[in-house]
């Protein structure tokens, strides 16, 4: 885990500087700053409508911050299209699973390798040796990834036929295929049973260590968030009300007030 605050800022991978986003007259997120270090697992929580998903969409380029800047390893991401931001090394999963419904499990992951593809449409037509080699390499890596997550036995199945928990895992595998530096998980525990949640916590920890990436987790389930996050940011009505390790957040009076109302 990163050491002091200054040390953390020095090596931060993702940085949000005073990001504000307004939709007409509504300020959804106001002056939000955040830093995620390399290899860190950060949680973002808050009551319904606090602006968590808006922050997510700001980082991934779906929305453009009205003010402030988003930096990945010092590079400004403001105004880049979502696909370009993924190209810079930020991958995400979705709150309601968004797999490619007509594709098999294998193809869902394979499609995500598109990002680092060397060949283009012309090579697909001429089918030269270099093209076939790259296709073979992608196939191999796809199967490796599926194997790590115990999904390779489903590789020929349609992704929609998978059990719910496996679909969520497949989404994570697909995101990892883009070779991200930072993985954003949008409510991965939603709709899961307690056992599945425990497995998910292990999985997230495993992914972070194996692939050496940072993770930003938006989650409602406190057991999951408190259980695995190194640091937590708390949002309420678009404003950051707390930041710190789980132990501090749990006893923070402002956080308790935001969730439970005034005592």
């Amino acid at each position: 885990m990163a050491g002091t605050l200054t040390g953390r800022l020095m090596e931060s991978l993702l940085k949000l500087n005073n990001c504000t986003i307004r939709f007409g007259g509504l300020t959804a997120v106001s002056c939000f700053s955040m830093a995620i270090a390399k290899g860190e697992l950060v949680g973002l929580i808050g009551p319904n409508g606090a602006g968590k998903t808006t922050v997510f969409n700001m980082v991934t380029g779906v929305y453009r911050p009205t003010e402030g800047e988003v930096l990945l390893a010092g590079e400004r991401l403001n105004g880049l299209k979502p696909y370009a931001i993924t190209g810079k090394g930020i991958a995400r999963t979705f709150q309601n699973i968004r797999l490619f419904g007509s594709l098999t499990v294998f193809d869902n992951v394979r499609a995500a390798f598109n990002l680092h593809l060397k060949h283009g449409p012309i090579h697909a037509l001429t089918r030269g040796k270099a093209f076939l080699n790259e296709e073979g390499a992608i196939e191999k890596r796809t199967l490796e990834l599926l194997k790590i997550f115990n999904l390779e036995r489903f590789r020929k199945a349609m992704c929609k036929s998978l059990p719910y928990g496996d679909q969520r895992r497949l989404e994570i595998v697909r995101a990892l295929a883009t070779e991200p530096k930072l993985l954003l998980l949008d409510e991965p525990a939603a709709g899961m049973t307690p056992t599945e949640k425990s497995n998910l916590m292990k999985l997230i920890e495993f992914v972070r260590e194996t692939f050496d990436i940072s993770v930003l987790l938006v989650e409602h389930d406190m057991r999951v968030v408190m259980g695995i996050c190194h640091r937590i940011y708390v949002l309420d009505y678009g404003v950051q009300i707390a930041e710190g390790p789980p132990s501090e957040i749990r006893s923070d009076p402002r956080v308790i007030e935001a969730y439970l109302g005034e005592a």
Partner: peptide
């Protein structure tokens, strides 16, 4: 496969780069 991802889910396709 990119053509098919555009058909299936544009938002997810963009998110996959």
């Amino acid at each position: 496969r990119g053509f098919l991802t555009v058909r299936d889910d544009e938002v997810a396709a963009e998110a996959m780069g």
